[in-house]
Design a protein around this nucleic acid. Structure first.
Length: 1030
RNA sequence: GCUCGAGUGGUGGAAUUGGUAGACACGUUGGACUUAAAAUCCAAUGGACAUUAGUCCGUACGGGUUCAAGUCCCGUCUCGAGUACCA
């Protein structure tokens, strides 16, 4: 052998060599390391934090990363100091579930997964500043998550200043005036106390009271408990009444949990949406989630009791239509007011509703159920008695958990009243309510309502509130659907709380002793006594003398105390990571003032829309909190946000024909015969090609089936022989095609065995490691109807767009694409597929277009002998200049508009044109390389180097567009007759309207079109179009 | 049910203010090169009729505005996403 010819890199487009070289170069030179100070303006481009899953990336995942990378690279060319970091949201359920099953420590699996992720990200050529990488599961990082938790704990929300303040200011108020004049967001059931009371309270009592005000607090809450996962879930982690992860049942349960008082920020979270450039659907879903509604609270006294029922209503104008009250079954008054007679019924009802899971409750919304308490409330105006019911259509968690039921104006109240035969008084003028409630507000006039008679909705509403306030039995009120967020998880693989307990009261650990590291445990399941997994830790107690974590055996509750056993939820680590990236290795502060003052906020944030009501809401909440504390300069962390669409898969199907065996089975054991048949059929499948499928489905012409039967006769006979050998005593034994209704069975096959023409590689399928055996004896009938044997025919698969998933065998791994076509091709193709925000199907076949483009691009710079690098110093032709500047203009506009798909087309057009022009001028090819560089950075760097430049292309100035190269002297006008384009006419652009009209009318084709008619009108839009009407 | 978003060739998609519908790419068909294949290059490619010149239809469907509508207005249908007893 000896001399294997070493190919000159300049000779052909060797993407493997090029991509590897430049990835090494970038890493070695830290090309994309961002400085925290610069004369350049800053720009912060961020991708949503990835969870490093075990499965690695498929081609759908990098879509957003490619877009953000293009934008980041573009901004560098435009003279910005760009921050483009990446890291891992590495706490999470999958690693823990794996740990439970295998005993493998989640840290080990997580580290391995991160390694795979990193390799996959690196091979795509992203311009991340890896020196800033963070991992939420590393103690250096979660130290600051714990620190933020402490800050939140030490804060309360002052409604007077409308911001979070230190609890010290609250304590000062308590000491001075008690709590009567404190205007705070806090628990509802707070007793009032004077300054003297406060001073007299025990220490524990004071702590208890403060907990009711803190922005994160410990309280008995109705939580969403998921028994299968063994943990509570936040509202956004439940989809359709089951857990988002795994789809497990969720039930309501009362538990002591940490909660975040996000409800304090409801209005500001709503208002902030108007200040950010985020997609409207995302804003809409946050708006819905926060669920602001304006109305009034009204107080109804309970007859023969001291109790009051506080309700929230959006329709105080309908207060005279109240004919009953409904309380949620969980409402605290229920047990107090229920009469002896009704007790049994009410208790039975409460028990029945408590048992139902969230999903059950949601599933039968239509079933009306409830019970009468026997008690009556008093109408604030008429003083009439109103029966009090309970019903599970009233939610304990919304408003006050009680409603004033106005059946004539609310469909749910109406249905409930109908079902239980409760009167339905009509308080609307001229409205028929015999069939359904009248929920319309506009054009509604109130009647039968005392002082509200004759008033329209808006006026009645104001007056009703005024009168309620006068009575001291209500006031105008705004209510939010947004609940406080449960912040405890009964899990191992999450941030430990920096909390220990003294007399049952939570105490924060001082900042200088953080982080409190996750302890080692024997097993990752809850303890036998039902405590969270940290209950298994042996070294999990806090020594207040040494300020260290010590063995549980040392707990004495005087100096050594038990630590918190819950961990923080998944969103804890991702709620401030974007700020930590600004100064990720700072050991003394979460980030320095200089860093945050320089970077300010995220300029562009790209990620999936699935985070709308989770991460993106919690992050905004924490940001606003940090803003209140003066820690960050902006109260919204991301100016612009884009949701990239999903890439779906294009599944491939083969079609199995069913066939049957008819026989007499009286000589043999039935089960045995059936088993044999089943095996015979599954071992000898017959597949028919796509067009035969279409033919058979299109008509019930029996000839098509006969044709098919003839084709497979040989095989059927062979099977019959096998069957006869096995069961010789059977005389009638026939194998034939099943021509019944479902004669076809589509089966997924791996998409990588299908080529661009949808032809199946049968040989590879049959030798597949996983499924080869299933197809070994299979017969494939091809497009022409031939049994495939070598190259006599081809088998075409059917295709269908489905979600990319392992079970559908349509997952495409970027590693394989990079291997065959290179990262630059993959990047271009992903962008070329369609608009970023839209979801679109992946089909590997199309990548040849992007790859072909790169080869053509390469050839432009390699027009020398045998493809050697060659550019000329000659002045480019006018056409080449025009092509270049047209491209600069379009690409710049496209990137600014995030329309990456159209700029790829633009590049293709440019290269096609320059190729046709035989352009090899440096003056065109140099700027072209820069234009392409954000999209296909490796090839651009290589070309830049060959053009004779030192160093990276990445910060070279973006080419400047010059209008003068596009100025034209003439235009090819489309000439339309009655709006239909008939021919084209080249005319100078400096002609006046009249001159254009004259030129067109003089044209022979015009006469031909008009055929002697006189046009009624001639429309001329100079530079655009000519339309002749007549 | 409610709230958004979208319907354009065989496929992904383009069309900037209402102004040449289908750019660009895949696929398909034919051709060149080759012993052959791959690669590459050239040509055609919305449909129907005519196969020279042309004509008609065509952006989910039905109306409307306009010299001109994929684009604007009204109504209908279909699909997708989010949300779901929120008083």
């Amino acid at each position: 052998m000896g001399n294997i010819e070493k190919k000159d890199i300049s000779m052909h487009y060797d993407f493997k060599e090029i991509e590897k070289n430049w990835q090494d170069f970038w890493a070695k030179n830290e090309t994309f390391k961002a400085k925290n100070n610069s004369d350049k303006p800053k720009y912060y481009v961020l991708d949503m934090f990835p969870y490093p899953s075990g499965a690695g990336l498929h081609v759908g995942h990098p879509l957003g990363y490619i877009a953000s990378d293009i934008y980041a690279r573009y901004k560098r060319h435009k003279g910005f100091n760009v921050l483009h970091p990446q890291g891992y949201d590495s706490f999470g359920l999958p690693a823990e579930q794996y740990a439970i099953q295998t005993g493998q420590h989640p840290a080990v699996t997580t580290a391995a997964n991160i390694k795979t992720y990193r390799r996959q990200l690196d091979q795509l050529g992203f311009s991340f500043d890896w020196s800033r990488e963070v991992r939420t599961s590393s103690p250096e990082y979660y130290k600051w998550t714990q620190w933020i938790f402490i800050q939140i704990f030490n804060s309360w929300y002052n409604k007077d200043t409308d911001k979070a303040e230190d609890v010290e200011t609250l304590i000062a108020k308590f000491s001075a005036d008690g709590n009567a004049n404190v205007n705070a967001v806090c628990d509802d059931d707070i007793e009032s106390f004077s300054a003297a009371d406060w001073k007299a309270f025990s220490d524990v009592k004071k702590q208890e009271i403060l907990l009711q005000y803190r922005l994160t607090y410990l309280a008995d809450t109705e939580v969403n408990w998921c028994p299968a996962l063994g943990t509570v879930l936040a509202n956004d982690e439940i989809v359709n009444g089951v857990s988002e992860r795994g789809g497990h049942t969720v039930i309501r349960k009362k538990m002591t949990q940490w909660s975040m008082r996000i409800s304090a920020y409801a209005q500001r979270l709503l208002d902030g949406l108007n200040t950010v450039d985020w997609p409207q659907p995302l804003k809409d879903s946050q708006t819905n989630w926060i669920g602001r509604s304006q109305g009034a609270s009204a107080v109804f006294n309970v007859k023969d009791h001291d109790e009051k029922i506080d309700v929230f209503t959006t329709r105080p104008d309908t207060i005279f239509g109240v004919s009953f009250m409904t309380l949620a079954p969980e409402h605290e008054l229920v047990s107090k007011i229920t009469t002896e007679v009704q007790k049994a019924e009410v208790e039975a009802y409460i028990e029945a509703t408590a048992k139902r899971s969230e999903r059950d409750r949601m599933a039968d919304v239509k079933t009306i159920s409830g019970a009468f308490t026997g008690a009556y409330a008093e109408h604030p105006f008429t003083k009439e008695p109103i029966p009090i019911w309970i019903g599970d259509y009233v939610l304990a968690g919304y408003g006050t958990g009680a409603v004033m039921s106005v059946p004539c104006g609310d469909q749910r109240d109406y249905d409930f009243a109908k079902h239980f035969n409760i009167p339905i008084p009509n308080i609307f003028e001229g409205v028929d309510i015999s069939e359904e409630a009248h929920a319309d507000k506009d054009k509604t006039v109130i009647a039968n309502s005392d002082f509200l008679n004759g008033l329209p909705y808006k006026k009645a509403m104001k007056l009703a509130i005024y009168e309620l306030e006068k009575l001291g039995q209500g006031e105008g009120k705004i209510n939010y659907r947004l609940r406080d967020a449960v912040f405890s998880r009964q899990r191992y693989w999450g941030e430990p709380f920096p909390v220990y307990y003294v007399d049952g009261m939570p105490q924060m650990i001082e900042k200088e002793f953080l982080p409190i590291a996750l302890p080692e445990v024997e097993k990752y399941l809850p303890t036998e006594t039902g405590e969270p997994p940290l209950g298994n830790a042996e070294v999990w107690a806090w020594d207040t003398v040494t300020n260290t974590v010590v063995n549980n055996s040392e707990i004495n509750n005087s100096t050594v105390f038990p630590l918190e056993l819950n961990t923080m939820p998944g969103w804890a680590g991702s709620s401030q990571y974007f700020n930590r990236y600004m100064d990720p290795h700072n050991e003394n502060e979460i980030f320095s003032k200089e860093a945050i003052d320089y970077w300010q906020d995220v300029d562009l944030y790209i990620g999936g829309s699935e985070h709308a009501t989770g991460h993106l809401l919690y992050s905004r909440f924490w940001q606003k909190f940090m803003f209140d504390k003066g820690l960050v300069p902006k109260d919204e962390f991301a100016k612009k946000l884009i949701n990239q669409g999903m890439i779906t898969g294009t599944s491939a199907f083969v079609y199995k024909v069913r066939f049957e065996i008819t026989q007499a089975d009286e000589f043999y054991d039935r089960d045995e015969v059936e088993k044999f048949h089943a095996e015979l059929i599954s071992n000898n499948p017959i597949f028919i090609s796509k067009n035969l499928v279409d033919k058979l489905l299109a008509s019930d012409n029996p000839e098509n089936f006969e044709f098919l039967t003839r084709k497979v006769e040989g095989k059927l006979n062979e099977l019959e022989d096998l069957a006869r050998k096995k069961f010789p005593k059977v005389e009638v034994l026939r194998v034939e095609l099943d021509l019944g209704k479902n004669f076809l069975m589509p089966l997924h096959v791996k998409v990588n065995y299908v080529n661009a023409s949808d032809e199946l590689d049968i040989h590879s399928l049959k030798t597949d490691d996983e499924f080869g055996e299933d197809f070994e004896k299979a017969i494939f009938i091809g497009e022409k109807g031939e049994i495939i044997d070598g190259k006599n025919d081809v088998y075409k698969v059917g295709r269908e767009v489905e979600k990319m998933s392992k079970s559908k065998y349509n997952v495409v791994n970027p590693d394989a694409i990079c291997e065959e076509y290179g990262a630059d091709s993959l990047r271009l193709y992903e962008m070329f597929l369609g608009p970023l925000e839209q979801s679109k199907p992946w089909n590997t076949a199309g990548i040849t277009g992007a790859h072909g483009f790169l080869k053509k691009l390469w050839r432009l710079y390699h027009s020398g002998a045998e493809g050697a690098f060659a550019v000329s110093e000659d002045e480019p032709s006018k056409d080449s200049y025009k092509t270049l500047h047209k491209t600069i203009k379009k690409v710049e506009e496209d990137i600014e508009n995030f329309s990456f798909n159209t700029s790829v087309s633009t590049f293709m057009i440019a290269v096609n044109e320059l190729g046709a022009q035989k352009c090899s001028s440096r003056k065109v090819l140099e700027p072209l390389a820069i234009l392409v560089s954000p999209y296909a950075p490796h090839i651009a760097e290589e070309l830049w180097k060959q053009l004779g430049h030192e160093g990276s292309i990445s910060t070279v100035d973006f080419p400047k567009f010059e209008e003068k190269y596009l100025v034209e002297s003439s235009k090819e006008y489309p000439v339309s007759f009655n709006g239909k384009m008939r021919f084209k006419l080249e005319l100078p652009l400096d002609l006046s309207k009249d001159e254009i009209e004259a030129a067109v009318m003089a044209h022979e084709k015009t006469a031909q079109q008009l055929q002697g008619r006189t046009p009624k009108k001639v429309i001329v839009v100079p530079g655009k179009i000519i339309n002749i009407v007549g």
